[in-house]
Amino acid sequence: MKIKVLFFAALREQVGAASEDIDLPGEKSTIAALRSHLAARGGAWQSALSEKKLLRFAINQDMAAPDALLKAGDEVAFFPPVTGG
C-alpha cells in the first residue's frame, strides 16, 4: 500500500526528512501502525516518534486520531502540537 508521509517543524528536523513515499505492507493500516513502522528504523526515527513524544496527525489534510485507517494514496502528516496565532 503506497502512501505519502510528510513531517513538519521540530519533527522534520529530527528525522531529517520533509516527505517520503512509503510502501506499507498489507492493504490496511493505521496512523499508529505507521508510526511504529517508522520508529522501528531506530536512531533518530525511534527517538522522534517514540510513544513518549506528543504528536499530532493528519490524513489528507484533516486532523486524524492515531487509530484512523489509512488507504492507498493517502497523504499522511506527522507533526508536533501546533503553535500558530
Binding site: 521540530a10 507533526f79 502540537p81 501546533v82 503553535t83 500558530g84 496565532g85
Partner: peptide
C-alpha cells in the same frame, strides 16, 4: 476563531534567541 486557530491550524513557530534557535512549545 482565534482559540481554534491556535490549536488546530498547522503553523509552528521557531524562535531565534541569543542562546540559539528553538521550536516554541504548545
Amino acid at each position: 476563531i482565534m482559540d481554534y486557530l491556535k490549536t488546530r491550524a498547522p503553523f509552528w513557530k521557531k524562535e531565534q534567541t541569543p542562546e540559539g534557535t528553538r521550536w516554541v512549545e504548545a
